[in-house]
Design a protein around this nucleic acid. Structure first.
Lengths: 157, 157
DNA sequence: AAAGTCCTTGCATATTTATACAGATTAATG
DNA sequence: CATTAATCTGTATAAATATGCAAGGACTTT
């Protein structure tokens, strides 16, 4: 049970802007996990989640999310531009970084990515379908920014 | 007063492993800032500091620290190696990244750095004194790892 | 200077989070 | 199966953090 609940907590924290353990409790209850605040306090410690003071109140964040953002910033620096024609997406990178960036794109195991091939500062990304090129460009672009669309919990109060 | 205290808080948080506002209060008192926990709570919100659940208890961290670590990871990736002779330090980087890395080294405004000059994948760093070369190498090396030596507050309890 | 406004802070307390303890459950061992 | 050990959880409560309110100061306006 605990393990599944931990998964659920991670899931929730990535999708929702959680500002207190009480909020989290309500959200988990909706997902079928009925526990007390005490247990959540322990879970959050186990998962190593952090509490951040943002402009509009506190927010609980996964420690892994910080890592992810690090990666995003990193890629944003290395990727010079993204372009495409009717059949392939071309990603321009800093010199010598194409292999590395392509590796990261591969590592996504994203369903829209058929495959990549990298030279020195250029990557060709082949989409699953040429119709999906605009979508896939968005995916790659999202690697660069840390844009996200959190749901707020104000409706719970 | 508030502004100076904010500086002091940042200072303390980068050097010491702070686990509670009470701890921080004691540390600030030592530094001549005598305030209440209530004020610290507000300060921490103002500064946007986060609370992280680590293996051994909570820890307050500056948001900027995350940024800093990002930078370190980034540089660790870009710097291929560091070497020196009797008079100059040579930093090898990824192709095309020497200018960027040199810019960051310059940005440190470190007293041991006299100046830098960068080609495509090589940087020459001239030290203030050739005797300081070993020290300066340590400084540059420290840019790459996120090694740190936090003081624990257990002695305060 | 008096009055008004804005900002900061402490006090007291509300709110939130962590934990000691005990009971329940599961796993491991003889 | 009985027994011991280990893990998990809720209850109650301690500990930690946030905040409403009022006081005090700095600064401006009249």
């Amino acid at each position: 049970m605990k393990q599944a609940r931990h998964m659920a907590i991670k899931e929730v924290l990535t999708r929702v802007n959680v500002g207190s353990q009480e909020d989290l409790l309500k959200l988990l209850k909706k997902a079928g996990f009925d526990v007390t605040q005490a247990t959540l306090s322990r879970d959050l410690k186990d998962l190593g989640v952090g509490r951040v003071n943002t402009a509009d109140g506190v927010r609980y964040v996964l420690q892994t999310e910080a890592e992810e953002q690090k990666l995003r910033a990193f890629l944003g620096y290395e990727i010079e531009g993204i372009d495409s024609n009717e059949s392939v997406i071309v990603v321009k990178t800093l010199p010598g970084r194409a292999q590395g960036v392509a590796g990261i794109i591969d590592g996504l195991h994203h369903p829209l990515v058929l495959g990549t091939i990298a030279g020195d500062n250029t990557i060709f990304v082949t989409p699953k379908s040429v119709k999906k090129i605009p979508d896939l460009i968005k995916v790659i672009r999202s690697l660069m920014s840390e844009q996200r669309n959190p749901i707020h919990t104000s409706s719970l109060h």
